[in-house]
Nucleic acid binder design. Structure first.
Lengths: 147, 147
DNA sequence: TCAATCATGACAGTTTGCTGTCATATCTCT
DNA sequence: AGAGATATGACAGCAAACTGTCATGATTGA
């Protein structure tokens, strides 16, 4: 493999590892509150502004169908509801309910603790650099692969 | 959310996005050769040295069961075989066959092109920094969360 | 205006990875 | 040597994301 290929391979394999760790952490944080990582993620996407399913999917880089499944489950559990969308008859808005908001709020202390642990480990400044690099890579991947 | 929480949330969401992009890219590269991203990954893990299923799982940060499933499929398709492991009666070694090696080799040109595109986009030096940051973050996550 | 195109949700089926459990092989320690 | 701990594979079931397809609501352009 060329050096460039090695770099890409390392990036990909590391991204897979990292994804696994973040998923595990999210599940760990969400579980005590009765949520899964996916549920938390969808709830988080509509905390500040209600969005239709397809909008959530776009924001998270997932397919409509995946998000639809989760959204239906959330509504079923009373953590979210579907509200009429003035701009679109079929695309109802996913809105967090009080119960959903309360659940997300209960994750907060553990979430904060985990965040502080991570930042402490890397140092404030390095932590920002590292996350910045992550964002830059994701942006480039999205721009590059889309065509 | 505290600034630390925001940073963790950004890192996690970006990691999910990035994971999706790398997966899509890997599938795109592997598909013309009749492989999936997961198959390619497992084959790649045993290209240089045969490993038992559990060893592959450890190397990739996955569970034994996931890898076992893929390995069985690979053997079924003749891309790998199970060889006796002198060190362990039950833990057979996964070995790439000629067909498996040929498949991986056929991915090479597209793999190289994709790698060059990515590095060109970021610049040689920045690309290394970014991947370094990714590795550092993954390492910290693994060290931090494991207890 | 209205026909063609696009966006959205619903439904079905597939893939991949996970957890849990069991039986057995290997290793460790006294 | 042998008991307990650990590693491994097999099997079953579940969660989450994907692709494909269809019907219908929105948008756009001639």
């Amino acid at each position: 493999m060329t050096p460039d290929q090695e770099l890409l391979a390392t990036a990909a394999l590391t991204s897979f590892r990292l994804n696994g760790r973040f998923l595990a952490l999210a599940d760990e944080l969400a579980k005590p509150v009765g949520l899964t990582a996916a549920w938390w993620q969808v709830l988080g996407a509509v905390l500040h502004e209600p969005l239709p399913v397809s909008g959530i999917a776009r924001a998270m880089g997932l397919t409509r169908q995946s998000v639809q499944r989760i959204a239906d489950l959330l509504v079923d559990r009373g953590l979210a509801t579907y509200a009429d969308n003035p701009a679109h008859a079929r695309a109802k808005l996913v809105v967090v309910t009080d119960a959903g908001l309360a659940a997300v709020r209960r994750i907060d202390p553990a979430h904060r603790a985990a965040a502080e642990r991570l930042v402490a480990e890397l140092g404030e400044e390095r932590a920002r650099e590292v996350v910045g690099a992550l964002v830059e890579l994701a942006d480039v991947m999205e721009r590059t692969e889309h065509r």
